[in-house]
Simulated scan of single mutants.
Amino acid sequence: MSRIAARFEKLRAEGRKAFVSYVMAGDPDHATSLEILKGLPRAGVDIVELGVPFTDPMADGPTIQAAGQRALAGGQTLERTLAMVRAFREGDAETPLVLMGYYNPIYSRGVARFLEDAATAGVDGLIVVDLPPEEDDELCLPALAAGIDFIRLATPTTDDRRLPKVLENTSGFVYYVSITGITGAAEAQAEVVGPEVARIKARTDLPVLVGFGIRSPQSAEAIAGVADGCVVGSAIVSEIAAGKPVAEVLDYVRGLAEGAHRA
Rank of each mutant, 00 (worst) to 15 (best):
I36E: 00
V52A: 09
L209K: 03
M1Q: 09
A66F: 05
V20R: 00
T204A: 12
E191M: 07
R254F: 02
D159V: 06
M100F: 15
L82Y: 12
E134N: 08
L82G: 11
I4C: 07
F54K: 08
A18D: 08
A18P: 06
A13V: 01
R80Y: 01
R152Q: 13
Q218I: 12
L115I: 11
P133S: 07
A66K: 15
G44E: 00
L167T: 03
Y252A: 05
P57C: 08
A263W: 08
E14A: 15
L40S: 05
A73G: 05
P41V: 05
I223K: 03
A263T: 11
H261P: 03
E196T: 07
Y175T: 06
G259S: 06
R203D: 03
A224P: 01
S21T: 06
V226L: 08
I151E: 06
E79H: 08
T204K: 14
I236M: 04
A190W: 14
D137C: 03
A227V: 14
I4M: 09
Y102Q: 09
E49H: 04
P41R: 08
C140D: 05
I36P: 00
L50K: 00
P207V: 09
S178F: 10
A43Y: 00
D130N: 11
E138K: 13
Y176E: 04
S21Q: 02
G15P: 06
A227R: 02
A257S: 12
A59I: 13
R262Y: 03
E248S: 14
V208S: 10
A241E: 13
S219I: 00
E79T: 08
S178G: 13
A87W: 00
E94D: 15
P57A: 13
G255P: 13
A154D: 12
D149I: 10
